[in-house]
């Protein structure tokens, strides 16, 4: 399957989780803000930090559990992120000169911790982003953003993008499929010249479609103001949820796990 087809299908599947589960009972703003708290706490961790990061994985995993998302769905989408993190972090074990003593007395470079840390960061941030939209849904994300005072035009733009990605994407998919059927190559790249022609063609169709949508808007009395969607309601559970995750992020940041661990193993050094 081409990347385009898988994207269209993937996009549809993103939307299918959002309708059910506890998450849909929360204000989308709550989830967006708690995701941001998690990501900021994550990025604020020290360079070679692993322990502060690990517990932060609880946020995306909680979304996964509460929204009933199959773990394999996440694994499949998150894997493409790994090579990038590895590429960036792989040199660190050799670039860094500090060492850590292991149980057997062997010393390894702190760079391994940096590598682990970068990989963990990549995984947590990717999982947070993917699960944010999967558990809340495309539509409610844009509602939440509107509730966070993001300009109305940008929200309209986002919603139009969601809406017409399917239409334009499927049009493109048909053209691409026709090319693949005749080119004999199931995967792979397209010659630049052909890609340009395809894009020109699609572009012209898109322009024509924009014209027709414009007409449809005019026909229904459009005068420049796109009506806003239903208003959002912030409830007590939203405050609890947000305060909980913000506090958790802060605790992780101030090294709660280490404290817990030392308490447990009785290693007060």
């Amino acid at each position: 399957m081409s990347r385009l087809s898988s994207t269209i299908d993937g996009w549809r599947s993103f939307d299918s989780f959002a309708a059910e589960g506890l998450i849909s009972g929360l204000d989308p703003r709550t989830i967006i803000l708690s995701a941001l708290c998690t990501v900021i706490a994550m990025t604020g961790a020290g360079k070679g930090e692993v322990m502060v990061l690990l517990p932060l994985a609880a946020f995306p995993l909680t979304l996964l559990v509460l929204a009933d998302i199959p773990p394999m769905w996440l694994v499949k989408r998150i894997l493409p992120v790994l090579p990038f993190a590895l590429m960036i972090g792989l040199l660190n074990p050799w670039l860094e000169q500090g060492t850590v003593t292991l149980p057997g007395g062997a010393e390894i470079s702190t760079g391994w911790f940096t590598l682990a840390s970068i990989t963990l960061r990549a995984l947590i941030s990717a999982a947070t982003a993917l699960l944010l939209i999967a558990s809340v849904g495309l539509l409610n994300i844009s509602r939440g953003l509107a509730g966070l005072r993001v300009p109305a035009l940008f929200i309209t733009q986002l919603q139009m993008l969601f809406r017409y990605f399917f239409v334009i994407g499927e049009e493109f998919q048909r053209m691409e499929r026709a090319w693949r059927l005749r080119s004999g190559s199931r995967r792979g790249r397209m010659p630049l010249k052909l890609a340009a022609q395809l894009l020109q063609n699609l572009f012209l169709r898109s322009l024509a479609r924009a014209g027709r949508i414009h007409n449809a808007m005019l026909a229904r009395g459009f005068s420049g103001e796109v009506p806003a969607g239903a208003p959002l309601h912030w409830r007590l559970r939203d405050t609890v949820w947000l305060a909980g995750w913000a506090g958790f992020a802060l605790l992780c940041h101030s090294n709660l796990p280490m404290l817990l661990g030392t308490l447990l193993t009785g290693q007060p050094q």
């Binding site: 844009s142 809406r163 239409v167 449809a216 969607g229």
Partner: peptide
């Protein structure tokens, strides 16, 4: 598809 440009059916019907 040209006519249903709003995010949900409800909002689209409310547009006019």
């Amino acid at each position: 598809d040209d006519q249903l440009f709003m995010p949900t059916v409800f909002e689209d019907v409310a547009f006019g």
